[in-house]
């Protein structure tokens, strides 16, 4: 199957998944105790009868349930995620101002954990009983057992309070002055601690996986072939072996996106990172359901997109998949 047809199929399947996410949202609002109109309005107090009537009209709440679903789906399809009554803004717009920060954090954490994890895994694989291997084993237990929000707080206490190297919170300095380059540096400076916090959970997993995968690949026949050709050892490891060993890492990286977004939620809250996580936190405390539901939909959409992108990356990295055209 060629790549275009493959992308088309994956996109279609992604849309089907998103359809069910929206339906699930719809069902949840109806399952929640109380009048759906009041649920949608949120428990903010001071809702007037006109507002409730307005909501009933917009969502067609007096119509049959099927019609209500159709109306809801229609709104979502147009990109209308509803109105946040607490923030007094369209939910789509609210999320739009926050999504960039979350993507930045998630990608930075993913990048850091894969890079360091793979490097650790490669060195561990060269000596399966060596120091790095032991470190990888210890790290993977730690990475599993550390509550991510607590790690973040500990890092703040150590690296922002006791040793004031990094800022305590936020994404940019309060009174920032300077050019765009300095601005980028300022954001990166703020990004270090949150990204590291989030990366710690996943780093160990990637290191463990990379180690196992590298050990297996280094024993493969084609590695012997490379050595028999006279390929220098460094090139054997980093060119011939690594290209094959990253394939399972890529698969896992794709599956991790949902967990990354969950982790980002907590990390953002700890560091006051102005992304979707803090927005979700704020709106849940205010019972601002349209915003919460919108974030759930967009979060799911991010996972779907990330999965499609990793599948595409996998097709690029593994020529065998490309011609067979099958899914993993």
């Amino acid at each position: 199957m060629n790549t275009a047809a493959y992308i088309a199929r994956r996109l279609f399947y992604g849309l089907v998944l998103m359809f069910f996410v929206v339906v699930l949202n719809f069902v949840l609002i109806r399952l929640a105790p109380g009048d759906p109109a009041e649920v949608i309005a949120g428990e903010m107090g001071g809702i007037t009868q006109e507002m409730l009537a307005d909501i009933r009209a917009t969502y067609g709440l007096d119509k049959p349930i099927a019609t209500q679903l159709a109306i809801y789906l229609g709104q979502i399809a147009r990109g209308d995620l509803g109105m946040s009554f607490f923030f007094d803004q369209p939910v789509a717009k609210l999320i739009g101002t926050r999504i960039g920060a979350t993507i930045l954090l998630v990608l930075a954490a993913q990048l850091v954990s894969i890079l360091i994890g793979v490097v650790m895994g490669v060195f561990a694989a060269r000596k399966p009983n060596g120091v790095v291997s032991a470190l990888v084993a210890v790290f993977s237990t730690l990475g599993y057992a550390l509550p991510v929000f607590w790690t973040g707080i500990m890092l703040i206490i150590v690296f922002a309070s006791w040793l004031p190297i990094f800022p305590v919170e936020g994404m940019r300095s309060a009174r920032f002055e300077g050019g765009s380059f300095a601005y980028v540096l300022d954001v990166l400076h703020h990004l270090v601690l949150p990204a590291v916090t989030l990366a710690i959970i996943f780093l160990a997993q990637y290191a463990r996986l990379a180690r196992a995968s590298m050990i297996e690949v280094l024993g493969a026949d084609y590695i012997r072939t490379a050595r028999a050709k006279g390929v220098p050892e460094r090139r054997v490891v980093f060119h011939h072996a690594l290209r094959n060993a990253v394939l399972p890492i890529l698969t896992v990286a794709g599956l991790q996106f949902g967990n990354l977004i969950s982790g980002a939620l907590l990390v953002e809250t700890v560091f006051n990172w102005p992304g979707m996580g803090t927005l979700a936190f704020d709106s849940i405390l205010r019972r601002d359901y349209p915003t919460v539901m919108g974030i759930l939909i967009i979060g799911a959409a991010m996972v779907v997109v990330a999965n499609i992108l990793t599948d595409l990356g996998y097709r690029l990295a593994d020529p065998r998949i490309r011609t067979e055209g099958g899914r993993r």
């Binding site: 998944l17 996410v21 699930l24 967990n259 969950s262 982790g263 939620l265 919460v292 799911a300 779907v304």
Partner: peptide, 10 residues
């Protein structure tokens, strides 16, 4: 596909 913690929060 649903981010687990977010879904649990909801």
């Amino acid at each position: 596909v649903l981010p687990a913690l977010l879904f649990a929060m909801v």
